[in-house]
Design a protein around this nucleic acid. Structure first.
Length: 586
RNA sequence: CGGGGCGUAGCGCAGCCCGGCAGCGCACCGCGUUUGGGACGCGGGGGUCGGAGGUUCAAAUCCUCUCGCCCCGACCA
């Protein structure tokens, strides 16, 4: 491609609304343009890179038996109503009515459509297992898109769906994806780690998230540098601290004027925060049939620790939680700031395991300005549920080895779910087993967003001058900078390299050398050739790798073979990173 | 949904307090010079100042409403 023909534009200045490096550089280098919040056009340079990412995904999913198909973005709402997700999912789902006033949905994922295909097409155990996938547009009306392509509302995703007749088959396809995903990320030269994750609204029995560790990530991970335990903070487990046994004291009501927060209370009573119990009120949304209703959830955690909302959602099996308003708290007879489960009736009380075990805590008296001393679970109050609902934090003891946990940020670049029969049962997608008995097909679903992956690769591979693409992802493999006196030779080399099967970008614009070099650095093609009078006079062409500072001079008649060899070396370097990863499910 | 910030030429911004010709740099077009790390000279094009309403002789500027974008939080397959 000649740059004089390329549909692109580089920017000298950083766009005012871009904060993270990948966003700034993808915009400056002319890869993407924003249309609206979380909605981007993909320009020719990034389309080429995305095609490469998607071809790597095709390659790896085909290798584990995947068959590519394509399912519609616009879905009739019926199938979503059949699985109930039409009602369960909130405003994140794009909805509209067609001309006949029928409810329509913009697909955010394709379990429903796959299950519909299965019920129409799969009738016998002889047709299983199968693996289908597509690479296609998704729309999720995210409340807060951010960081360029990292989090958007419309995006392209590779999603595959495994179909099996038993758990064993699901396990096999799940593990095949587990490895295939590492292969994909490694071929993109992006370091990644798989962590166990919350199954969330997808349902099912097991899920892993693939994380790219980066400070700009929005997920928090807890990591044990000793044994390798790594988990999303949403579900991270930890060893509970030892409880010192002590004789149970007598329940005693004390005046604690103005001590409405744990910090004030601990200060007022001169006790550590760990000797208090904290009441956290959430309004939970529970779905019954197609109806939602809200109910107060009263969570009790130790005063010095934080509530983990995901653990709480899972413990009470709610659709979602939000903080309760003061009037909602008062409605059940509790007093905000001085609340405790003591004496409350008909309230869903969830007590953290640690609180249940800890003797003689201080807790509210449900009366403004008063607390109880020596509160003990079982004697003074009961719980509807006792569960681990505390958020793990840095320096907590690792669940496996007790080592202090480290905290890091990450971007979720892929996920795999063992779905089970949630969708196939809802849609009646059954097959007849060997005994002629109808069984629901067992599903798994597996996703990678290609745009987010591109952004993460950009985040990982850049410097202050611009992008530094891995050879497998770069929009072009070779960038020729044609300078004065080298135009003819540059055109000739360009043609020869293309004939040799290389992907070449030729800067034939009548710009000054500085502009051309800076644009080359910005765009980040891995191999750069500079062809100008200065080196041609010595019978040489200058060769530079984008990632290296030094340049080398190559005799003109060796340039084609030299560039081919370097391309092969760069490819081999990336492919060497594709290795077997042991499956970890804990 | 809560908190904060910003909307003026393609991009980056000044002007707004204190109302009075809509500006600067880059980019773009023409001519000439220049050509190994974001060249120079001369000439030029491009704006309903996000939108609506109000106050005023007069509004980019003051007031009200509204839309959009960014950041933090909530939320999130």
């Amino acid at each position: 491609m000649k740059m004089s023909d390329l549909f692109f534009q580089t920017l000298r200045e950083v766009p005012a609304d871009a904060e993270v490096a990948s966003h700034q550089l993808l915009v400056r280098a002319g890869f993407i343009k924003q249309l609206g919040a979380g909605i981007y056009s993909v320009l020719p340079l990034s389309k080429r890179s995305l095609n490469k990412i998607e071809n790597i995904m095709r390659d790896e999913i085909n290798a584990i038996g995947g068959q590519e198909l394509s399912m519609p973005v616009v879905n009739p709402a019926e199938v979503w109503k059949e699985t109930n997700r039409y009602y369960e999912i909130g405003s994140e789902m794009g909805r509209f009515k067609d001309r006949k006033d029928a409810d329509m949905v913009l697909a955010m994922t394709h379990e429903e459509v796959v299950a519909d295909l299965v019920r129409k097409m799969i009738h016998s155990y002889k047709q299983l297992p199968k693996l289908v996938y597509h690479i296609q547009t998704k729309f999720r009306d995210d409340p807060r898109p951010r960081a360029g392509l990292i989090r958007v509302r419309e995006f392209t995703m590779k999603d595959s769906y495994s179909l099996d007749l038993d758990e064993e088959g699901l396990d096999k396809q799940y593990k095949a994806h587990y490895q295939a995903y590492f292969n994909i990320f490694n071929r993109c030269d992006l370091p990644s780690a798989a962590v166990l994750s919350d199954v969330g609204m997808m349902g099912g029995s097991m899920a892993h998230e693939y994380m790219y560790l980066t400070p700009i990530g929005e997920d928090t991970l807890l990591i044990c540098n000793d044994c390798g335990y790594m988990a999303n903070r949403q579900i991270a487990l930890f060893q509970q601290p030892e409880i010192t046994e002590e004789p149970l004291g007598e329940l005693e009501k004390v005046a604690t004027p103005g001590a409405a927060t744990i910090a004030d209370l601990a200060e007022f009573l001169k006790i550590p925060e760990s000797k208090t119990a904290k009441a956290v009120f959430m309004m939970g949304t529970f779905t019954e049939g197609t109806e939602d209703h809200e109910k107060l959830v009263f969570a009790v955690v130790r005063g010095d620790l934080e509530l983990n909302e995901t653990k709480l959602v899972n413990a009470v099996k709610a659709k979602e939680l939000r903080p309760a308003q003061d009037d909602e708290i008062a409605a059940v007879g509790a007093s905000p700031g001085y609340a405790s489960p003591i004496g409350l009736k008909d309230v869903l009380v969830v007590v953290d395991e640690l609180v249940a075990k800890s003797p003689n805590l201080v807790s509210g008296a449900n009366e403004e300005g008063f607390h109880y001393l020596n509160v003990n679970y079982g004697r003074d109050f009961e719980a509807s549920i006792v569960a681990d609902i505390t958020a793990a934090e840095k320096d907590f003891a690792c669940i496996n080895c007790g080592n202090a946990l480290d905290e890091k940020r990450g971007v979720e670049i892929g996920n795999i779910f063992k779905l089970g029969t949630k969708y196939t049962e809802a849609l009646g997608a059954n097959f007849l087993d060997k005994n002629g008995k109808a069984q629901p097909v067992i599903m798994g679903s597996y996703g990678i967003g290609s745009g987010r992956l591109l952004a993460c690769i950009a985040e990982e591979h850049h410097d202050e001058h611009g992008l530094i693409w891995p050879i497998t992802i770069a929009p072009y493999q070779v960038h020729i900078v044609a300078l004065k006196g080298g135009e003819e030779k540059a055109a000739e080399v360009y043609q020869q390299l293309e004939e040799a099967g290389l992907e070449v970008l030729l800067d034939d614009r009548s710009e000054s050398p500085g502009v051309k070099f800076n644009d080359a650095d910005l765009i980040g093609v891995p191999i750069r050739l500079t062809i100008g009078k200065r080196s041609l006079e010595k019978g040489e062409i200058e060769l530079k790798l984008r990632r290296d500072a030094d340049r080398s001079a190559v005799p003109v008649d060796e340039i084609i073979s030299n560039v081919l060899a370097i391309k092969d070396t760069l490819l081999a370097e990336v492919h060497k990173k594709v290795v077997e990863v042991p499956f970890k499910a804990e």
